[in-house]
Design a protein around this nucleic acid. Structure first.
Lengths: 344, 344
DNA sequence: ATTTAATGCGGCGTTAGTTGTCGCAGCACT
DNA sequence: AGTGCTGCGACAACTAACGCCGCATTAAAT
């Protein structure tokens, strides 16, 4: 890439260097970055490129309130280089529907231009007038969709950058217990997005232990002066499996054996519980016998609970007992008169 | 866009017209499409653009086995015009983790270049050598992740295009009951992606009733000669809510009243069940009183079941009864000796 | 207040690249 | 063999890009 002397390519590089609207970049910085990439051009040329060529053809703005002008892309603009094809666009639309229930609005918002691009493509396809695609595509999430916790756009940007560029941050944090915001200096080690809430794993400056910080309770994040402190021993998977998010998990898989009703059998035949899974019809009934290797985790147990009467767990016995005890306790809750305990 | 005579812009348009690798486009077609967009150039120029300019700077291939050469983009290439920023890249990584458990691999595969682009950006950031971002970002899905049903890439492409461009398709369909593949002509009306499986809503040629077709049981989809038949009365939301996917739903919201344990209270304070929700502490206990307007659907009921002993539903009474009956039935399943019915 | 350095911008001549045209060659089809 | 399509090399005319210069404006420094 030393002397890639091609105007087209230089323009492309230039366009890639201009950030989307909250961001800005000044002309001298652009010149420098271009030089880094092998484009040694006169400042005047760069000015002409920006002011006359690019800004007429692209939604590029210029902040000329201060003298080294600052350039930025329109917030909504997105351009994919091999243009999106129809199946990809449809996938993006589906993805958006799913993600809206899973990630905080601000985080999904980061991808809005992409989704808009997809929608635009689909809109433009409607040869016969009104576009109907929006009325024929739906994503149904798996579980109950809780409303994702709101978080601040600036916070997300700062935290994301801090984590990946290994910087410490100063935040105002509203802890769960107290009502007051406390200033903290954090050393980010990881981010966990657990269905509808997003957590930062970090340790507080001066302390050793790792803690979770709900991002929506973080106010005013900013890069800190303090140097970022690593934790070499940190393993995010181990951390999660240790039960930090209520998902404790045994180290090994277990063999689940159960009798399942026909609708469940059909479901699992199409979308199996695991790679190792067998389903056999039981004689003289609408029931099936399921054997599957599954992880020993909370998720699976919850799924079994949700299946309620459609699944009878035989093994592992621990789960069987848990389900039984749960059912007994739930029943007890709802039982007004303790004596009306019905069995089969 | 009539006489947008700018080389740069023409190149850009050209690049957008070249499809990703499974697709191809021939030189004369390109010339025509360029003309449509206001670029009236000589064939020779186009040939030069492709063969000398673009293909040296971009991963563009040329299939010269037949005479009108056919051009295509490298499968893996992706270029976002305002380049991805760090927060967006992180969002993409999170999105990928979620979507892998929700959409069939082939569908997610449509977006692979995007995700790769994001990963590449993050990889390139690691100033201090090895990139660690992969070890510090996780998405924990809400429910149990079943293994998404596999489906054929060509099938997805055909079905997606047929749906959106309103074409009928000929398929070989392996129905759930029979073991044999049957040829069908379908008129696609919608696509529903329900957690791990994806369904096409269509009516069979010659019939009036709408049916669901699991995409992973569709083999050999191809555009049909037959003209596509619309169904004006089709409303996908109404269709889903009518219970077609096991998610029957009452037309109105209901008011859920329940007593919830403290962890649930915390969870719901951060990621509410609905916009209208109040949580009040109950005196003399670790319990809280929840009131929320929620949809009257299966999802919510399942969620309540999963909460098991941590939630005691007070209203609506129908749910209360359902939960109670369920618990009783589950308990009955697990009860070896009917007499050991324990209550509080 | 004056100086100084940095930035933007118009203009100009040189240079380099782009474009259409022509002719030729290979290929498929008739 | 003929015809039409496509790709490619070459050439000349044209156009655009580039660096340089000078000047105006602005902000910081003296």
């Amino acid at each position: 890439m030393s002397d890639a002397r091609d105007t087209l390519f230089r323009y492309l590089t230039l366009l890639q260097l201009i950030p989307r609207s909250p961001g800005r970049i000044s002309t001298p910085v652009l010149k420098e970055k271009l030089a880094e990439r092998g484009f040694h051009i006169d400042t005047r040329s760069l000015q002409r490129d920006l002011g006359q060529k690019l800004s007429t053809q692209f939604p590029i703005g210029c902040d000329d309130s201060q003298k080294p002008y600052r350039w930025y892309f329109d917030r909504a603009f997105q351009c994919h280089l091999p243009a999106l094809d129809v199946p990809s666009a449809l996938t993006l639309v589906l993805a958006e529907e799913y993600l809206k229930g899973l990630l905080p609005p601000v985080v999904v918002g980061q991808l809005t231009p992409h989704f808009n691009d997809a929608r635009q493509l689909l809109d433009g396809m409607a040869s016969n007038g009104l576009s109907k695609w929006a009325r024929c595509v739906r994503a149904i999430p798996n579980g109950k969709a809780l409303i994702p916790a709101e978080l601040d756009e600036a916070t997300w940007q700062t935290v994301a950058e801090a984590l990946l560029e290994q910087k410490a941050i100063d935040v105002m944090y509203l802890s769960r217990n107290s009502e007051t915001e406390k200033p903290l200096t954090l050393h980010p080690q990881g981010i966990v997005s657990r269905h509808s809430a997003t957590y930062l794993l970090a340790h507080v400056d001066g302390f050793e232990d790792l803690r979770q910080f709900a991002l929506h309770r973080v106010k005013h994040a900013a890069f800190s002066q303090r140097a970022w402190q690593a934790r070499d021993d940190f393993d995010i998977d181990r951390y999660i499996q240790s039960g930090a998010f209520g998902y404790r998990q045994g180290p090994d898989n277990v063999v689940l054996e159960a009798e399942i009703a026909r609708p469940v059998a059909w479901l699992l035949q199409e979308t199996p519980l695991s790679e190792q899974q067998t389903i056999d019809a039981l004689p003289d009934s609408q029931w099936y016998r399921l054997t599957a290797q599954v992880p020993d985790d909370q998720q699976t147990l919850w799924w079994l609970m949700g299946m309620s009467t459609n699944v009878k767990v035989l093994a592992p016995s621990a789960w069987r007992e848990t389900l039984k005890a749960n059912a007994a306790q739930v029943l007890a809750h709802y039982q007004d008169t303790p004596n009306t305990c019905d069995t089969h």
